[in-house]
Simulated scan of single mutants.
Amino acid sequence: MKLNVSATLTYGFGSATQVIAAIEAARSPDQTILSEELRIWPDTALIRDEDGATGERRFRAAFSGQVQITYRALIDNGERTLLPRDARQHDWSELPQDVLPYLLPSRFSPSDEFMRFAQREFRTVPTGGARVLAVLDWLHTHLDYVHGVSHAMTTAEQTFIDRAGVCRDFSHLGIALTRALNIPARAVSAYALDLDPPDFHAVYEIYLDGRWWLVDPTRLAPVEGMVRIASGRDAADIAFLTSEYNCQCLNQVITVTRADADAGQQAA
């Protein structure tokens, strides 16, 4: 599937502020960047960082006053394969070294606090893909998608108690439960087709059968219509904008459309 993605972010900075931004699509085998453009107004010097292993890209800069960041890209994510029920779970001795950190508790996904619950709740489900799908079903059944219940510091423990939250909360709890079942899981930021209202989307990936599989615990957007931006232990690693001082979001517009649909509209 070919997708047009765009993000226009307008922020106000009271004084010179260092930032790290992650809004560009990652370069990875399951998504190809056909064209892209990044513009900063006013023009500012950038330091570009790219992770050779994950294909993730970030830039660093020092901003002051009102700044507008615009990113547009045409992405081909092919035919993304959905997680099968029979995907095999690995013994820890089989896992690549770079996957091991995603078995461990993290700040927003303290999986060690969910060991007893997860093992009891899902012990009758076969290991591997079937067990991950059971976790996703549990999240869908037991959590409500509600704005205003959580905040930037909400952890998976709090979401488990409140039984409500937004996409990052669903993902944090899903990651915690999955890691508690001895399956590697990592947080992912993405552009998502059909997400309403349009925004950056927080989902997660699990490692089974020798590869990472993308899943959406909210079920608000099709996995095959997502464009991966960044991944990490939890939301602290995948924020689209991190600043050393407080800043003010003045406007944010995110759009994701099918490229063939856009072409059809223009032809009409």
Score class of each variant (00 low, 15 high):
P222K: 08
Y71H: 03
R168I: 09
P42G: 08
K2Y: 06
L9G: 08
A268I: 07
D237K: 06
H140F: 01
T32I: 14
A53N: 02
L104W: 02
R168D: 11
A261M: 10
N246I: 03
A263H: 13
D237N: 04
A263L: 15
D98F: 11
A239T: 11
A21G: 02
G225W: 05
D137P: 00
A152K: 12
E79P: 09
A152H: 03
F160I: 00
P42V: 05
V149D: 04
M115D: 06
Q97R: 07
H151P: 04
T32R: 14
L143P: 02
E37S: 10
S171N: 03
T255Q: 15
N182R: 06
V215F: 02
F114Y: 09
D76T: 05
A21H: 11
S93I: 10
L250G: 11
A62T: 09
E56D: 08
A268V: 01
G174N: 08
L195E: 06
P29C: 06
N251W: 06
R228I: 14
S231L: 11
A16E: 13
E56A: 11
A190C: 15
I206K: 02
L177M: 07
N251H: 13
L133G: 02
R186Q: 10
D86N: 08
V135T: 01
Q66M: 08
A61Y: 15
V125T: 14
T141I: 01
Y11Q: 09
L139I: 06
A263W: 14
H140L: 02
A164R: 00
T127M: 08
A73K: 08
P84V: 10
V19N: 04
D237P: 06
A221R: 03
G174L: 00
V203Y: 01
A221Q: 10
T54M: 10
D30L: 09
D162T: 02
A156N: 00
L83P: 03
G55Y: 14
T178W: 07
H142E: 05
A221T: 14
Y245R: 12
M226N: 06
A192D: 00
F63I: 01
G12N: 13
R48M: 12
E79Q: 15
A180W: 01
C249L: 04
V227D: 01
D30E: 07
A180P: 00
V146F: 06
F59Q: 00
A152F: 08
D76F: 05
F114I: 14
A21S: 14
A268W: 14
E224K: 15
A236K: 03
M1C: 09
A192I: 03
P126V: 05
T242C: 11
A235P: 04
T257W: 15
V215Y: 02
V149K: 09
A239C: 11
E37P: 03
E157W: 13
I23Q: 05
A176Y: 05
L177D: 02
N246E: 11
R39A: 04
R57F: 06
P42W: 13
Q18L: 15
D194H: 10
